[in-house]
């Protein structure tokens, strides 16, 4: 893992990607800082960080697009996967390298709250808290980017797809507000999910009977629950999509609350995508 980590860090600075990322990151955060804090005299640094969250759409793809796509294109993955290193080690090495670069950017911009503290007393704990939330949110999104990079051997495709995915994750709150809320539509939604799940299972196992039976059983259970207690289905669709909303989870940090639940959420989100990346790579080798 350390071998991959060291190599990725070095590659960030051998190519321009690392400098572009850091330069862009510091510059844009600086502009937000000027607008939100310096020009208005507001001492709350959290508003700068919250305002600059959209920066992730552009910057996370810059960090992650190359990580696996370039290995497959240059065929250097043949070296990595025939070396005595586990796939977990490789994926984690890359993840931590990207996270380190991101953290470096955050540490550099950490100078801004210090500048603020020259003009008055800032809420140090609150600033630390929002920066912490900002870092783990960034790490969760980096894991998404790495996953997408492992799906293709084209950096540009990886960058555009990551951009689109992050855009969806950010916009999900806006969409969920438009979703139907009635119990009946929620039941239809659950049934669709069950069918999709069964199709995936059937595709993976190349069997029809077992996934089919499981889907029918699950569908029947869903209908029974609906008959007995329809209120359980109220607003289920928006609750389902709301679960993926990264931004609403950031609000607690922004408000100055240290939320253990949201911390665990971000970390498990990152873990799930690292896990999926490992699986995608293993599956490709086993197919």
């Amino acid at each position: 893992m350390t071998a991959i980590y060291k190599k990725e860090i070095r590659t960030y600075f051998n190519t321009l990607a690392g400098y572009i990322f850091l330069g862009f990151f510091v510059a844009i955060t600086g502009i937000y800082f000027m607008i939100n804090n310096m020009n208005t005299g507001d001492l709350n640094y959290a508003s700068t960080l919250a305002g600059s969250l959209m920066l992730f759409w552009i910057l996370i793809p810059v960090l992650t697009m190359r990580l696996f796509a370039e290995e497959s294109r240059q065929k250097t993955d043949q070296l990595l996967f025939t070396s005595p290193v586990s796939v977990w080690g490789i994926v984690l090495g890359k993840f931590f390298a990207a996270a380190t670069l991101f953290l470096t950017g955050v540490i550099i911009t950490g100078i801004f709250p210090f500048i603020l503290s020259r003009f008055g007393s800032i809420a140090a704990a609150r600033t630390m808290n929002v920066m912490f939330g900002y870092v783990i949110l960034g790490c969760a999104l980096i894991a998404v980017g790495i996953f997408i990079s492992a799906l293709t051997d084209n950096q540009i495709v990886a960058a555009v797809a990551t951009f689109a995915a992050l855009f969806m994750l950010f916009m999900i709150d806006g969409f969920t507000a438009q979703m139907p809320v009635s119990a009946a539509s929620s039941l239809v939604f659950v049934l669709i999910l069950i069918v999709i799940g069964a199709l995936i299972l059937a595709g993976e196992t190349k069997r029809i009977v077992l996934p089919g039976a499981a889907a029918i059983a699950a569908g029947a259970a869903a209908v029974v629950v609906y008959k007995l207690n329809p209120s359980a289905y109220d607003g289920l669709i928006s609750r389902f999509f709301g679960w993926f909303s990264m931004i609403s989870r950031f609000e607690n940090f922004y408000a100055g609350v240290f939320s253990l639940a949201d911390t665990v959420y971000y970390i498990s989100f990152a873990f799930v995508f690292v896990y999926l990346t490992v699986n995608v790579i293993e599956k490709r080798r086993w197919s």
């Binding site: 190599k7 590659t11 051998n14 240059q74 065929k75 250097t76 993955d77 043949q78 070296l79």
Partner: peptide
């Protein structure tokens, strides 16, 4: 391998 797995940079 057939293509040497080298990092150009």
């Amino acid at each position: 391998p057939e293509t040497p797995p080298v990092y150009g940079d």
